[in-house]
Design a protein around this nucleic acid. Structure first.
Lengths: 210, 210
DNA sequence: TAGATTGTTAATCGATTAACAATC
DNA sequence: TAGATTGTTAATCGATTAACAATC
């Protein structure tokens, strides 16, 4: 057995594991039972050595000479990424991006549950996107507390983002995906991941200009 | 002087440079003329040493003892990221995510121009999001050719993504931001960046579970 | 068995951080 | 001048790749 199977995974590794998981789900849906590190690597776009090195860090159980059982591996990755249980999250700001997230992201397949969505606009409050009816922002504090929400996606305009963020943290939210155009100031115990869409385009622009 | 100022930047560096650029634009909008590596680092969330090391790789011109002139630095980063000129791009699939991109991403501030948006749904074709009226997917080939579009954001359902992608590549598109839930198969000369939103949430979930 | 593919360690490579001289 | 901050190199750290024995 040995070492650090239970230590936390580095960011590149956990990132890749979650992408392997999506690939596995797709393979399973196509009736594939087994996959080799080679095939996984071809699909992800890295190499077999890295795939095996990544999987070596979790409780994975490949069969030497036959590759990995898709179902087992999917479960091993889910376990390594702590996807068991049901983490509750909310979306703040139900413009087009908030709607896209509420409507199309398959949280329930990955141990998450979208428990609430919020907006301040009276013409949006009460509408339903995905499974959820939009609540007024004024009910944010009570809702987060009552539904024990621990994560949030922030999809509000730049001016509103820091104040929304402060409120979320005050109510005990531990992780925030920040889609707003402002960087957030947060205490150390809160995890913020910046997802400014323009940056993806800047990267795309740079890479295609080489 | 010396070495590799004109060589291409590594992915982590170009990534961070684009985020520094956003921070600089914000500082400028607040009337800040000058910024130190320390302040930039505090805002980005790394350390001053890394900021200087990153900026060292481009034609930046800080003033020892006073920091960097925001305007100069912004221009130096723009130049390093090849943001000069006007790169034309399109969005395929005008559901909520396509609309969010067309409406809220400030392409024109960063050397890009959204030249077309496409959908197959007749109830969406002809509507206007951002500056652009949605075109029918049937006109995709002609439009990409005529408007010399070189980049695309793919926001279509999983089933449609590979065929849309093939068409884009056939018409000469060099870079694709893939928001669809499928990994794409592309020839080596095409750059694809996967942006599956669920992966951001998986990462958030993992980090907040530690 | 022979062939394929994993598990695992070691080697390489690249990215981050530290340090400090240069200088505004 | 003294203090602040950059520019730049070297040291450290971590991530990726290579290699191959184990084994199904």
């Amino acid at each position: 057995m040995a070492q650090n199977k239970s230590d936390s995974l580095s960011a590149p590794v956990s990132q890749r594991l979650s992408e392997y998981l999506l690939i596995l789900e797709h393979l399973k849906s196509q009736g594939q039972d087994v996959v080799s590190s080679r095939v996984l690597a071809d699909s992800y776009g890295n190499n077999a050595s890295q795939v095996r090195h990544d999987l070596f860090q979790i409780e994975s159980t490949g069969s030497r000479s036959h590759g990995y059982d898709c179902k087992n591996l999917s479960e091993a990755i889910r376990s390594a990424l702590n996807l068991e249980g049901e983490k509750r999250l909310c979306v703040i700001g139900m413009g087009n991006l908030g709607r896209a997230i509420a409507t199309h992201v398959p949280f329930q397949n990955y141990g998450m549950k979208l428990s609430a969505t919020f907006d301040i606009d009276p013409t949006i409050i009460g509408r339903k996107f995905g499974q959820i009816t939009v609540s007024p922002s004024s009910s944010l504090e009570a809702t987060i507390r009552d539904k024990k929400i621990t994560m949030a996606a922030l999809c509000v305009p730049a001016e509103k983002s820091q104040s929304s963020c402060d409120l979320l943290i005050k109510m005990g939210v531990k992780g925030i995906l920040n889609y707003s155009r402002m960087r957030l100031k947060v205490p150390k115990h809160v995890y913020v991941q910046d997802e400014q869409i323009i940056c993806s385009f800047l990267q795309l622009s740079y890479k295609t200009s080489l």
